[in-house]
Write a protein that binds this DNA or RNA. Structure first.
Lengths: 224, 224
DNA sequence: GTCTATATGGGGATAGAC
DNA sequence: GTCTATCCCCATATAGAC
């Protein structure tokens, strides 16, 4: 995975009951319901009642699967991490040159962000929530490292193994891309002014490609 | 100020009573108390009771100055915007070359962010809150535009008036810097791994300087 | 595993004395 | 302008039948 390795203790008490087929489905429905309610109303107005309603489940059922609201929310965040990889692969063209991959990846991310504005807001809120929740900070870190690892691989391969050199360069690239995307998300949220934000995307593409150049010449150039 | 101009209706009902000297002070104490409580515990655990306690005021007094928790929180966000300019000027060296100013400004921002981690978290939470609050979205936009305007001026002058050309270039630069800083803040929060984040700062400095070059040669070069 | 019904506490907000 | 005391709702969580 990555350098700053996480202890990643299992989520405290998500209470995984029987694991019946039906049980697993219901659990998933509740998580989806929570995400929907969060996307539509934000953290401030998010209640277990709304979540239950949105999931088509009674309040008590929710508590049968998640012993506390907190653990439910952390489960939602975990789920978002898992979804991410799937989502990006959808519309990504896959050039062979890493430089062009960077560009394709950034544009793909940005399209995804734009068509899932509320989901991004929800994810940002959940990440902050995790950072504020005693003993859940590691989840935020895991989320970030998952993104970094994912982008890193996508820059170089279709998903295979990386050389040490590639991993190092790719990680730096991925970190910078992620910085840019997160910043773009916030700015786009606040200004909801897509024209200006698109300029930011172009600038990020150029800056990231330049970074790749720099890192490669520092190492001794060879192509992807 | 900027292109996407805000209507900026006054905050609905902050109930500005008499405006006695003492009243103004108490109001300020409550805002500070709210910020402190927010910094230490986050939105999720922020209650009017904690705010009142943190401000050394009784709950009813809080409601004498702010008719609702919502309006109090929005007032806190407004206050943060006003503080910002003050804070940055503190430790900024002021080179005459815009390129070096960019570097100095980014480093200054980053120092400030690092020594006020919790304040940044609080501000991010408040911004998201505003984005989620019906009729308060403009506050988030105003905040962003205030930052952009501020950085833009700082890149070129000690604070004086700008030519149209400078304003245009400066705004693009400021937007990109802000994207980078926001992304850095989130990444640093999540990974709290300052070593790696500092690399991101270096990359941002280089990228922003390059952006300045590019914008200038697109326009017809002339220095600061 | 899912429900109805309920316990319990804490939250925002107000009344009215000083 | 600040306080004490209180209202009342709604949130999380549980008990226990089905």
């Amino acid at each position: 995975m990555d350098d700053n390795d996480q202890p990643a203790p299992p989520l405290p008490s998500t209470r995984t009951p029987g694991a019946t087929r039906k049980g697993v489905e219901t659990r998933a429905r509740i998580i989806r319901g929570a995400l929907e309610a969060l996307e539509s109303g934000g953290m401030e107005t998010l209640t277990t009642r709304k979540i239950a309603a949105s999931a088509g489940v009674k309040l008590a059922t929710l508590h049968y699967y998640f012993d506390s609201k907190e653990n439910l929310l952390l489960a939602v965040l975990e789920d978002l991490i898992a979804d991410m990889a799937e989502a990006y692969r959808q519309d990504m063209s896959m050039p062979s040159d890493p430089e062009e991959r960077i560009e394709a990846l950034i544009r793909s991310m940005w399209r995804y962000v734009q068509r899932t504005r509320n989901k991004q807001l929800a994810q940002t809120e959940l990440t902050l929530y995790a950072l504020r929740t005693q003993g859940a900070e590691w989840l935020a870190a895991r989320q970030y490292n998952a993104y970094i690892d994912f982008y890193c691989r996508l820059v170089f391969h279709g998903m295979g193994e990386l050389t040490e050199e590639q991993r190092k360069i790719g990680t730096a690239i991925a970190r910078f891309m992620l910085i840019g995307i997160d910043g773009l998300i916030l700015q786009n949220f606040a200004l909801h002014n897509n024209g200006d934000t698109n300029e930011g995307v172009e600038t990020l593409v150029i800056a990231t490609r330049d970074l790749l150049h720099r890192l490669r010449s520092e190492a001794g150039i060879q192509p992807g």
